[in-house]
Simulated scan of single mutants.
Amino acid sequence: MASTQGDGASSNSMAATSSSQNQGSTSTRRGRGRAKNNKLRSYAELTGGKPTIVIPPDLTQLVGHNLHMFKAELGIICRCYAPIAAATWKEMEDFQNTTLRVRLEV
Rank of each mutant, 00 (worst) to 15 (best):
residue 69 M to C: 07
residue 78 C to T: 07
residue 54 V to Q: 03
residue 72 A to Y: 05
residue 36 K to N: 06
residue 39 K to C: 06
residue 42 S to K: 13
residue 81 Y to R: 03
residue 70 F to Q: 07
residue 68 H to I: 11
residue 72 A to P: 00
residue 69 M to L: 15
residue 76 I to R: 15
residue 38 N to D: 13
residue 82 A to C: 13
residue 73 E to V: 00
residue 75 G to Q: 04
residue 53 I to Q: 01
residue 63 V to S: 12
residue 54 V to D: 06
residue 70 F to V: 02
residue 39 K to S: 14
residue 59 L to E: 06
residue 56 P to N: 03
residue 41 R to T: 12
residue 50 K to D: 03
residue 76 I to T: 07
residue 71 K to Q: 14
residue 45 E to A: 15
residue 47 T to G: 01
residue 67 L to S: 12
residue 58 D to C: 06
residue 42 S to F: 00
residue 78 C to Q: 07
residue 40 L to I: 01
residue 51 P to R: 01
residue 68 H to L: 10
residue 77 I to L: 09
residue 80 C to N: 14
residue 75 G to P: 03
residue 40 L to M: 10
residue 49 G to A: 05
residue 44 A to S: 06
residue 45 E to K: 15
residue 55 I to Y: 02
residue 77 I to G: 04
residue 76 I to P: 00
residue 81 Y to Q: 06
residue 57 P to V: 12
residue 79 R to H: 11
residue 57 P to M: 06
residue 66 N to E: 14
residue 73 E to C: 03
residue 35 A to K: 03
residue 78 C to R: 09
residue 45 E to L: 15
residue 67 L to A: 11
residue 61 Q to C: 04
residue 76 I to Y: 07
residue 69 M to E: 10
residue 47 T to D: 02
residue 72 A to T: 15
residue 59 L to A: 06
residue 37 N to P: 02
residue 57 P to H: 08
residue 48 G to D: 06
residue 40 L to P: 02
residue 81 Y to K: 10
residue 71 K to S: 12
residue 63 V to P: 05
residue 75 G to H: 08
residue 38 N to P: 00
residue 60 T to R: 15
residue 56 P to T: 01
residue 40 L to V: 03
residue 76 I to G: 00
residue 56 P to H: 02
residue 74 L to F: 10
residue 78 C to G: 04
residue 61 Q to N: 05
residue 46 L to Y: 08
residue 56 P to W: 02
residue 65 H to Y: 05
residue 39 K to H: 08
residue 52 T to M: 05
residue 77 I to H: 07
residue 81 Y to G: 01
residue 60 T to V: 11
residue 60 T to L: 13
residue 39 K to V: 07
residue 61 Q to V: 04
residue 50 K to G: 02
residue 36 K to M: 08
residue 46 L to I: 08
residue 78 C to K: 10
residue 73 E to T: 09
residue 65 H to K: 12
residue 73 E to Y: 10
residue 68 H to R: 10
residue 80 C to A: 13
residue 41 R to M: 11
residue 60 T to K: 15
residue 77 I to N: 05
residue 49 G to E: 02
residue 61 Q to G: 02
residue 82 A to P: 00
residue 56 P to C: 01
residue 56 P to A: 06
residue 73 E to Q: 15
residue 65 H to W: 00
residue 66 N to C: 11
residue 45 E to I: 13
residue 60 T to N: 14
residue 38 N to M: 13
residue 81 Y to C: 13
residue 42 S to T: 12
residue 38 N to K: 14
residue 72 A to N: 07
residue 80 C to G: 00
residue 75 G to S: 07
residue 52 T to N: 05
residue 44 A to P: 00
residue 55 I to N: 04
residue 68 H to K: 12
residue 75 G to K: 08
residue 51 P to A: 06
residue 54 V to P: 03
residue 40 L to W: 11
residue 82 A to E: 04
residue 46 L to K: 15
residue 67 L to N: 05
residue 44 A to E: 10
residue 55 I to L: 08
residue 41 R to H: 09
residue 49 G to M: 03
residue 64 G to M: 09
residue 56 P to G: 03
residue 50 K to T: 03
residue 61 Q to M: 05
residue 53 I to W: 01
residue 62 L to S: 01
residue 73 E to I: 01
residue 80 C to S: 12
